[in-house]
């Protein structure tokens, strides 16, 4: 198919392609440069960081910052915990969302409008930290990993978008499955889900990033430090720049800039790496035509 497009490309189209490539590569560079500075800074000495304004390669290369973060067993444990909670949590959250989105995509479902209105309301208004905390406590979820997964299980925004995608799918496929005697559960699994891979991959990513970056839930719900996730340890380092003298003990120096940068890298790179894996689902997409055939 790609070949067909090329053959019919006009000179103007070719010119557009060139400009487009140049623009997007430029945009990509702008997006990545500050990140590269943080990366370079994480390998630089404290002295270089305080004296050079902006650089992409450190004059003096050091891995001290990483050694001090990655050296501790606590960190390794937190990392494993976070990966596990993110993996399982994403699966649960995505499953719950898709299960609810599918019935809501049926226009004739009784009560659909009411439910959607209520969902929209929860998107705009959330009760706040303390009431939610009290419920989580009431349910006995304090100090369990469930507290990091369940309270945010269905994001109303994601639910609405996924519902909308389901609604857009060609009805004929479902109809023919129905005629073959498939029930709704089966249709969801063998017709709707495969066709919705790109959008499900997208929201898997959204949920995963949400859990990965969440520091409020572990802060509020986990007393036991041995259960803490990565962000609990990382945030302390990155947010400390606002400290004033009074907060600190008499002699405690603020954390070094280099460590802050290394922390940003450690927190970001694993979830950045997740993207290319999900990306293949976008590219594959689904060839509605071939399914039809």
């Amino acid at each position: 198919m790609a070949r067909v497009k090329y053959r019919f490309n006009t000179p103007a189209g070719k010119a557009f392609d060139v400009v487009n490539v140049v623009v997007l590569v430029g945009v990509g560079a702008i997006a990545i440069l500050p990140f590269l500075y943080v990366l370079a800074g994480s390998f630089a000495t404290e002295y270089e960081l305080t004296t050079r304004p902006f650089f992409l390669w450190p004059n003096e290369f050091t891995t001290d910052a990483y050694a001090s973060i990655l050296g501790s067993t606590v960190f390794v444990r937190a990392f494993i915990t976070t990966v596990a909670v993110t993996g399982v949590g994403t699966a649960i959250q995505l499953a719950l969302t898709a299960l609810m989105a599918y019935p809501l995509s049926k226009i004739d479902l009784p009560g659909r409008r009411t439910i959607m209105s209520l969902v929209v309301f929860t998107m705009v208004f959330s009760a706040g930290l303390i009431p939610t905390f009290l419920i989580v406590k009431e349910l006995g979820l304090l100090d369990t990993y469930w507290a990091l997964i369940l309270p945010a299980a269905i994001n109303p925004f994601s639910l609405i978008i996924i519902k909308n995608f389901f609604q857009e799918l060609p009805k004929e496929l479902e109809e023919s499955a129905k005629i073959d005697g498939a029930n709704e559960l089966r249709i969801l699994r063998s017709v709707v889900m495969p066709l919705s891979k790109p959008v499900l991959a997208t929201f898997a990513l959204f949920y995963a990033v949400g859990i990965w970056n969440d520091y409020m839930s572990p802060l509020i719900y986990l007393n036991d430090t041995s259960k803490w996730t990565l962000q609990m340890f990382l945030r302390q380092v990155t947010a400390a720049s606002s400290l004033t003298a009074e907060d600190l003990g008499n002699e405690l120096p603020p954390p070094a800039q280099g460590i802050k940068f290394a922390v940003v890298m450690v927190a970001t790179i694993p979830v950045l790496l997740a993207y290319p894996f999900l990306q293949k689902h976008f590219a594959k997409g689904m060839l509605i035509g071939s399914v039809k055939g």
């Binding site: 930290l129 409020m216 802060l219 509020i220 609990m232 945030r235 302390q236 947010a239 400390a240 907060d247």
Partner: peptide, 9 residues
């Protein structure tokens, strides 16, 4: 509790 979010907690 991490000092940064102590008040919230």
């Amino acid at each position: 509790v991490p000092n940064t979010d102590y008040g919230e907690r």
